[in-house]
Design a protein around this nucleic acid. Sequence first.
DNA 1: AATGAATGAGGGTTCATTCAT
DNA 2: TATGAATGAACCCTCATTCAT
Lengths: 230, 230, 230, 230
Amino acid sequence: MNTWKGAVPGADAQFVAKRQMILREAAASFNRRGYHGTSLADIAHTLGVSKAALYTYVKSKDELLFHCHEVAMDAAVESLRQARAEGGSALAQFCGTLRNYLRMILSNEACYVVLTEEQALEPEKAALIVRRRDAFEAELRGLVAAGILDGSVAPCNPKLAVFAALGAMNWVQKWFVAGGAWSGEQVAVALVQMIERMLAAHPAAALNVDPALLPALLNAPARTAPTAVD
Amino acid sequence: MNTWKGAVPGADAQFVAKRQMILREAAASFNRRGYHGTSLADIAHTLGVSKAALYTYVKSKDELLFHCHEVAMDAAVESLRQARAEGGSALAQFCGTLRNYLRMILSNEACYVVLTEEQALEPEKAALIVRRRDAFEAELRGLVAAGILDGSVAPCNPKLAVFAALGAMNWVQKWFVAGGAWSGEQVAVALVQMIERMLAAHPAAALNVDPALLPALLNAPARTAPTAVD
Amino acid sequence: MNTWKGAVPGADAQFVAKRQMILREAAASFNRRGYHGTSLADIAHTLGVSKAALYTYVKSKDELLFHCHEVAMDAAVESLRQARAEGGSALAQFCGTLRNYLRMILSNEACYVVLTEEQALEPEKAALIVRRRDAFEAELRGLVAAGILDGSVAPCNPKLAVFAALGAMNWVQKWFVAGGAWSGEQVAVALVQMIERMLAAHPAAALNVDPALLPALLNAPARTAPTAVD
Amino acid sequence: MNTWKGAVPGADAQFVAKRQMILREAAASFNRRGYHGTSLADIAHTLGVSKAALYTYVKSKDELLFHCHEVAMDAAVESLRQARAEGGSALAQFCGTLRNYLRMILSNEACYVVLTEEQALEPEKAALIVRRRDAFEAELRGLVAAGILDGSVAPCNPKLAVFAALGAMNWVQKWFVAGGAWSGEQVAVALVQMIERMLAAHPAAALNVDPALLPALLNAPARTAPTAVD
DNA sequence: AATGAATGAGGGTTCATTCAT
DNA sequence: TATGAATGAACCCTCATTCAT
């Protein structure tokens, strides 16, 4: 048994690469089955190694979840930084942040944890994550409020607006299927368009859909398992 | 030990009342900690009874989750039925459904399960739930599509629109705190207003917030644990 | 729920009658599934009463097993007494005892426990039963030995002989099916004939079977569950 | 805690050896206390390991019982095969089978399950065992019938004869004590002699006992627990 | 670096038994 | 007398974690 699922490139950076694989696999499983619903044996088996091998790269299951959350928060912060750097109205920056974040989340380079039981962490670790998350959300609220002031965002309650936007975004994990009809990029763009319309002071008249398609969409097939949008 | 957390009224309907308490408590815990993160011992302890006592009212943990999902689906279907009965444009019916659903979810009469691991159920039960959920979502997509045709909804992809709306709604469980600054009713109304703005062909210019309040909102306190909107 | 499976005759002797029913049912279940494999709920359900009702008639599951063993031992002792009373050679008395015992065991009046985990009893109760059983077996060994001396039994080791005979007898519980092709009486007679042949100084030339039937018997159908002899 | 009760020899066959120990211990306990009366904790404790350790070698308690039954059936089939190979009259083959089987059962190399609750198994596994057992018993009946035809066996009902013989044999587990006055080999030979006498067309005049011993046997000591024959 | 084996701590479930009604 | 509800103990099994190899 020594598969490591193919990956594992050249040299001594193997350690880092393998650790990455574990984190990715763990995040995927946490998203799908929840923290407590995921056993280390599952992860190990998927990677083709033994349970014990994981402990070479990770100190505990708890730490695994912690790192997943950290990676996700890093992505969030980075998304915001990039959007800020690109400038534009507060609304543009807000939407840019969400779009960047979605792109990262939906890329198959890495797998980010959302929705997931942060209270499963040890209190101190949980506090750390929650603090960062709160800070991020506060920044988003700030952008919304600023948008109202600069006229790009329609007057609204920023806290509620941010919750609504984050909900729409985090829910993606529940229905997006990599390799489905829509690419991650498409979803990122289209979903943020919807959110933008929710907040914009001057919303677009329509979203990117050919009205001729509509009758067909009425009979869209059921989603048995989480399925791609089409 | 015989608390049952106060409740338990007069008569022989005790059985039903107690069962209800268990379901409520279970749903709350499932929402907070996930199915696998919830132990029957937890639930029993919260209710002040022994683990074994639960088995008088419920056949298995699995069944507990199943009933929670059923109740939630009943609420969804009923929400739709009421909204349909009230008539109006397709958009009005769509928003009415969501509002009704939120009201039920946020009432403290009962506790509904969202977000939660349906794959934890036995395959047949899971299939049953998934089928109902798919049917419900299909109805919502139908309303959106109809709205586009009747002019109440801006052209968009109905599938994506429904996912966005459901995401915003289901996320409520993550941040709403009963007894906080906002009542469930307020959240239901305000959140649906946001969603309506996302979809409406002719969106409102503003949402129900006094712009004078905005500067204050910029410094909103952090949310340490799930906190109420204010 | 108040069935008691029909029985329960006239008056106040109900108590005794019901207790009898419980013992019968318990013995049947102990024989089939073993002491630990039988739950009081099973017994109660078969009788159509609640688990708690059993405790009106029986102090504990343990006591239930004890009484079953006592009844069985009573039957054994009584069998021996009757056989002794009828007199005859030691072999005749030995076989008479077994035949009487089989008759009682196989009657559907009562149900006797055999084979069953006497070590499941509390030590003192177990000791009581074991003592009686040992005494009974000693008597049987005495009869065999006496038979050797009086010439009715072929020289052999009495202890082994008794074990062999008891084994053949107690095994009946495993394959006899009331209402099957053979009656209890038939089995009692035929089986003791076989045992008699094993011990008799002058064995019968043949046992009660028409040799013409034999070829048919070669293809006897399989016994899926314990089945009657035919 | 790492005893494994001494055994566990040199090499990598440790796995097999330990598994064997578990099976042996389980079989012994099943025979003594029944399947439901045996807890994995008991077995583990006897072997000096933790309950969880058993699961490295065995998938479930159920499987444990299944393997015990399989080993027993293997022994039965092998006994028959050997006896057939040695040839002789049908009676000789019948008796040879039983003798071989007893030798295996009573060897302390392995421990075989008899008497034990096959209905405790999952239906499919139970069916498998029952099928093999029925086939074996059918073979034995065939030998008896053949014996009647070839004149080695006294006319009798083969089905009843086989039940009687098997009862006498399986009962051995109840009273034989390894290390007692009689060796397993002695019991195997002597008991089969008795069974042979039960069936033989021309029974031996006496069995292997010195008549001079008989008076002493009359006062044989009680058997408190299962005791050896002497 | 990786593994198989081992373990203590639960988790879900059943059961004999008690008790108020 | 009979019952439904309640409970503590026990049982089977899983899991995160450690350790010798």
